[in-house]
C-alpha cells in the first residue's frame, strides 16, 4: 500500500443513516435549542424520527427505505 494520506472528513453523511460530525462543541437543533457535544464524534438524526433529536438513536433502521 502506498503511504498517501487518507480522506478523513469532519462531516460524513452515512448512506440511509445519520450525519457523523467530528470535533463539534455545540449543536443547535431544529427547535433552536443548543446542545453541548460531549464526545469527539456524534451522530445527528437525518430521518427525523429519533427519540433523542438532534442525536441519532438508530430508529432509521426500522423505517422502510423508499
Amino acid at each position: 500500500m502506498s503511504e498517501a494520506d487518507f480522506d478523513h472528513p469532519d462531516i460524513v453523511l452515512e448512506p440511509h443513516g445519520p450525519m457523523l460530525v467530528r470535533g463539534a462543541s455545540t449543536i443547535r437543533d431544529a427547535e433552536g435549542t443548543l446542545h453541548r457535544v460531549e464526545r469527539p464524534v456524534v451522530a445527528l438524526c437525518r430521518c427525523d424520527k429519533s427519540s433523542r433529536k438532534p442525536w441519532c438513536d438508530g430508529t432509521h433502521k426500522v423505517i422502510p427505505r423508499r
Binding site: V12, E14, G17, P18, L20, R39, V41, V42, A43, R52, W55, C56, D57, G58
Partner: peptide, 10 residues
C-alpha cells in the same frame, strides 16, 4: 443509545 449510534457507523 447515543454512543452506539456513532459506533455502529464507525
Amino acid at each position: 443509545v447515543e454512543a452506539d449510534a456513532v459506533h455502529e457507523q464507525l
